[in-house]
């Protein structure tokens, strides 16, 4: 039986611990990126794709992803997009940095993913800024803007309009990796998972009523 989320694994050195981590073991099936083409997606509510993914390959999987979204399901990509495989998404734009304050993360909307998360905990790690996000996206019209750098540079958005499904795009590290740092950012992993379940249920209800 499929778990809630399919995590597409780039198979890189930094990602090895995810394969055995209890958080992922509970709710994620993990598949090597090059097996994505032959993976049956029908049982999954969400696909989570990290920044180390081979985007040349993902570009060849654009139709499969679109089909998944057409079923009212969720796609999460956390990283720097440079190929066109996510419907409605722009390419990643690196931010011009003049001062560490340019890395300041702002919450634009009260949303369950970032509930109780302090902006400074996202911006700073041991007093150093720049770990959370170093660039942004030009979101599609009507996207829900969750986080920005400065006032306008969109780090995180949710797009429920471009397809029948839901796209969460984040210009930083895997949102599910925020845990065990003893600060409010630890909430992001579990709250993103809770959002996946709630957003999926809501979208499926809407599809039935339509």
């Amino acid at each position: 039986m499929c778990k809630t989320i399919l995590y597409v694994d780039p198979g890189h050195a930094f990602g090895l611990k995810k394969r055995t981590h209890p958080f992922y073991a509970k709710d994620f099936d993990i598949v090597d990126q090059y097996s994505f083409a032959k993976t049956d997606l029908s049982g999954y509510r969400c696909i989570s794709i990290p920044g180390f993914i081979d985007q040349e390959y993902m570009q060849t999987q654009r139709d499969k992803i679109l089909e998944f979204l057409h079923d009212g399901k969720i796609l999460i990509f956390c990283g720097h997009l440079f190929r066109d495989w996510i419907p409605g998404a722009s390419m990643f734009i690196p931010k011009k940095i003049n001062s560490f304050q340019d890395y300041a993360v702002h919450i634009q909307k009260n949303h369950m993913i970032f509930k109780g998360v302090k902006e400074d905990d996202m911006t700073y790690n041991k007093g150093v800024a720049g770990f959370f996000a170093r660039g942004f996206y030009q979101p599609p019209k009507q996207a829900e803007i969750l986080l920005t750098l400065g006032e306008n540079e969109v780090v995180t958005y949710i797009d429920q309009n471009t397809t029948n499904g839901i796209i969460l795009l984040h210009a930083g590290n895997d949102l599910f990796s925020y845990m065990q740092a003893n600060k409010t950012t630890d909430r992001i992993s579990t709250q993103t998972f809770a959002w996946v379940q709630a957003a999926y249920d809501q979208r499926q209800k809407e599809r039935v009523s339509n």
Binding site: P10, H12, G51, F52, I53, D54, Q55, E56, Y57, G79, H80, L81, F82, F92
Partner: peptide, 10 residues
């Protein structure tokens, strides 16, 4: 070349 974003950028 892995096709990931960091290698593409670099």
């Amino acid at each position: 070349y892995s096709g990931n974003s960091v290698h593409h950028k670099t």
